[in-house]
Simulated assay, not measured.
Amino acid sequence: MLDDTDRRILRLFQADPSISTAELAERAGVSAGACWRRLEKLRSTGVIKGVEAVIDWRALGYEVEVSLRVVLDKTVPRAFEDFSAAAREVPEVLEIQSFLGRVDLRLSLIARDMPHYQQLYRDRILTLPHIVDIEALMHVARIQSQGTLPI
Rank of each mutant, 00 (worst) to 15 (best):
I55K: 12
S44H: 08
L120N: 07
A22V: 11
V93E: 05
D123N: 11
L109S: 09
F80Q: 00
V103I: 12
R88N: 10
I143G: 04
P129A: 01
E26K: 04
V66F: 04
I134D: 10
L68R: 06
R112K: 15
E52R: 05
K49F: 04
L39Y: 10
H116Q: 12
P115W: 06
R11V: 07
Q144E: 13
R88W: 11
E52H: 12
H116R: 07
L107A: 13
G50Y: 07
I96M: 13
G33L: 11
I131Q: 06
A59M: 11
R7I: 15
D73T: 04
M114G: 03
R112P: 08
V93Q: 02
L100W: 15
V140I: 12
E23F: 01
R102H: 15
V71P: 00
E95D: 13
I125W: 08
A15T: 04
G29M: 04
Y117S: 03
R78L: 06
T127P: 03
L120V: 03
M1K: 03
Y62P: 01
L126W: 10
S20N: 08
K74E: 14
A32D: 04
P91H: 12
P115A: 07
I48Y: 14
V103F: 03
E92F: 09
M1P: 05
R122Y: 01
A141K: 10
L100H: 14
E81S: 13
A87N: 12
S98Y: 13
P91C: 02
I151G: 01
R69G: 08
E23S: 05
A86P: 04
S44Q: 11
I9D: 11
R43T: 08
S18M: 10
T21K: 14
P150I: 10
R112E: 08
H130E: 08
L68G: 03
H130D: 09
R58L: 05
W36C: 01
E26H: 09
Q119I: 07
C35L: 00
L94H: 09
D3P: 09
R124K: 15
L137I: 06
P17C: 05
G29F: 03
R122A: 05
P129Q: 09
L107H: 06
F83K: 01
Q97N: 13
S108L: 13
V103S: 03
E89C: 02
P91W: 06
M114T: 13
D73S: 11
V76D: 01
D16L: 10
C35N: 04
Q118D: 13
A25Q: 03
V70G: 00
E81Y: 14
D113P: 02
H139V: 10
L128T: 02
L12H: 04
L10D: 11
R124H: 09
Q119V: 12
A141D: 13
L105R: 02
L12M: 02
I110Y: 10
Y121F: 13
S145D: 15
T127G: 02
A22P: 00
H139K: 14
L149P: 05
Q118N: 14
G29E: 00
V132E: 10
V54Q: 11
A59R: 14
I151N: 03
A79G: 12
A79V: 09
A28M: 11
R69C: 07
L72M: 04
